[in-house]
Simulated assay, not measured.
Amino acid sequence: MTAAASLATPALLRAQEKTQVADLMTPRIVGLNKSLPPGEVHVSPGLFRLFWTLPDGLAWMYPVRIGRGDLYEAGEFYIGAKKVWPSWTPTPGMIEREPEKYAQYADEGMPGGPGNPLGARALYLFTEERGDTFLRIHGTDDPGTIGRAVSNGCAGLVNNHMIDLYEKVPMNARVVLYPKRPSESLSRQS
């Protein structure tokens, strides 16, 4: 187990304010409970939120979906690749779990474009030890999945939010996927 895999959810992940339900789907700048270095991505799976950190203890907060069950992988990563309308090929594990859904894409995958599972943009998560982890932060054209644990391990944003985030996040940016906890938040206003 790497040090990243043993991440504990820090005390800064406790929600302090409630927000109107309509606001939950709108990206916005929020104050953080604890200052984090600017220029990092932090995913708080308990509240289905992704934070892009800014100076002065602020962050852009985006609603996300996350990996279901044990497919969600907590840890520390970096952005090793960025792609616009990426092509997609299911992993062997995906094909094994759901062959009726994924086997048809095993050989040639699916070209990028609308309807592709990676959506309009994708940030590829790497570690020094493993290289490409096959985990992604990516777009989706299915807004009904946001706020749910439904994916094969990746964090997903609606396409227009992902396009916005993609433009902000540079190569090699640090990414922290916190362990699943029932009520965590990085912000003072989640």
Rank of each mutant, 00 (worst) to 15 (best):
Y78I: 07
A106M: 03
L24I: 03
G115E: 06
I137L: 15
I79H: 07
E100N: 12
M110V: 02
A59Y: 06
G57H: 04
R49C: 06
D132L: 04
D107I: 10
D56K: 09
P92A: 05
I137T: 14
L58P: 00
G119Q: 09
G57P: 02
L58H: 14
E17K: 13
L135D: 12
T91M: 06
L50E: 03
I137R: 12
G57T: 09
E96P: 00
V41F: 13
W88C: 09
P37G: 06
R65I: 01
E96D: 09
Q16N: 08
E98S: 07
P55C: 03
G119A: 03
T127S: 14
G115R: 05
M110I: 08
P114R: 09
P114L: 04
W85L: 07
D56W: 05
A106W: 10
S35R: 06
P86V: 09
A120W: 00
Y105F: 15
K34F: 05
N116I: 02
D23K: 12
T53Q: 02
L47Q: 14
P45V: 12
T19G: 01
G139E: 14
H138I: 07
V21M: 04
L32M: 11
P86Q: 10
G80I: 08
T19M: 11
E100Q: 12
P86D: 10
E128Y: 14
A22F: 02
W88L: 05
D56A: 10
T53F: 08
N116D: 04
D141I: 00
R130A: 14
L36S: 11
P55H: 11
N33R: 03
Y124W: 12
N116G: 12
Y62G: 10
D107H: 13
M94V: 00
V43G: 13
L47N: 14
T26G: 02
E76K: 15
S44F: 03
P92Q: 12
G80P: 11
P90Q: 00
D70S: 11
A22W: 05
P55R: 05
K82H: 12
G139Q: 11
F48R: 07
G31I: 00
Y62I: 01
V30D: 04
E129P: 11
F51L: 10
G112V: 00
T127I: 05
I66T: 11
E128G: 15
P117F: 04
L47P: 01
A120T: 04
V64E: 09
A74M: 07
D141A: 03
D23Y: 09
L118I: 08
G139C: 15
I79F: 09
E73Y: 03
G112Y: 04
E98Y: 03
T26I: 07
I79M: 08
I79L: 09
R68S: 08
D107P: 01
E76D: 13
T19S: 03
L32T: 01
